[in-house]
Design a protein around this nucleic acid. Structure first.
Lengths: 207, 207
DNA sequence: GTGTGACTGTGAATGTATTAACAGTAGATT
DNA sequence: AATCTACTGTTAATACATTCACAGTCACAC
């Protein structure tokens, strides 16, 4: 499986397929056709078949796709079949909210170590996680074997932090800080910019 | 200006252009060439010129783009040149965090009325906003003249709430609830699914 | 003036994603 | 067993987005 030629849009849809399949599984549905899956996803049936066929031939002409099997397959593809531990940088309002966000736990993500530069917070425990100093990144992080990190800190010195994370083996980053960070070689950064989303909506609703 | 033929991707970039231009303005830069703007944005110069040319001809061969003027123009295009009031549905962890999120205020967005169905919360004041019952949506919302809303509630009965919002004149919705909502005619819905983003990163970092 | 260099705005070319359309197939029906 | 139906996987067609490449323009130098 050559991951590099999977359309990015397809990757984004994979987790939605998985969620839809989980619901179907919950309801005891054993198999599903591309039409129904498409309807639940809000895309075309052709899109569903194309997306899935990229990874292999899972469907059956008579019965469609096996719900349990496909759910498992997508989980393995996404790497969310086992628990993953994330590091978090920044314990402001947003950071603390994410610590207790149920959505992460439900999908197999767990925030392990948290770091901040505020000496008020360092050493204290938030939602069961001890807060470490950002200065101790190099000594603390390796113990947790994280491959992913969340940035929910201030924008100053962000590039340096990202570089250090990359050196420590972090492969991908979910970034809530609204400023451009240039990804180091081999590191994926996914930006979440809520204000930008609102501005987009503001524009679209004038049409 | 025919908004319908503006590429969606361009719309998403508009707010980033505006942010970059705001920084340049802060630094006292008067004008900027597409090359520099592209560098700050992390895109190609051709992309910058194409994006901007969709809305008109703002550039000057000798001086490039006037920073103040372009910043203002994009603001007007996005509709963020004046303060906009948003309604919020749901006052859980996430909702309360968004109430105090500085990013919104900075970009001209202000959360006005908040609604919940939990009688514990109704009538209380959070970050300066009184919480109303979701049952009173029709009587309370019109006073605030909101065109946009944020969904940060549970998933049950979501379609009904969206339909009521649409009837009350809401044109666009920022949805944090991880389930598909079919947009009523004329309503734009932008979904924010944090777990999906992590799953995407998980996939990409296996490549 | 005239020439030079570097820019913008844009048509044409390329790349990427989605949709249409159909060949091949497996079960159900007669 | 022959026929019918409705599906998948995939090829071809279309739509959408980005990049290339250049004509036209302006400031400046000589």
């Amino acid at each position: 499986m050559d991951f590099s030629k999977v359309p990015l849009q397809t990757v984004e849809r994979l987790s939605r397929y998985r969620r839809v399949l989980a619901d179907l599984q919950e309801d005891g549905v054993e198999s599903v056709f591309s039409h129904r899956l498409a309807e639940l996803m809000g895309v075309t049936p052709a899109q569903v078949r194309r997306d899935l066929s990229i990874f292999g031939s899972f469907g059956n002409v008579a019965r469609g796709y096996d719900v349990v099997e496909l759910h498992g397959t997508i989980g393995r593809l996404l790497g969310t079949d086992k628990l993953q531990t994330l590091a978090m940088i920044g314990l402001g309002n947003l950071g603390r909210t994410l610590l207790t966000y149920r959505g992460f736990q439900e999908r197999g993500f767990h925030i392990g170590p948290v770091f901040d530069r505020d000496s008020e917070k360092i050493g204290k425990v938030y939602a069961g996680r001890r807060c470490y100093s950002i200065d101790d990144l190099e000594t603390v992080l390796p113990d947790f074997k994280c491959k992913m990190a969340i940035l929910a800190c201030g924008s100053s010195g962000l590039d340096a932090i990202v570089a250090r994370l990359a050196d420590l083996g972090i492969r991908s980053i979910l970034n809530f800080v609204p400023c451009r960070v240039i990804p180091p070689q081999g590191v994926f950064i996914e930006n979440v910019d809520l204000s930008a989303k609102l501005e987009k909506l503001s524009f679209l609703s004038k049409a």
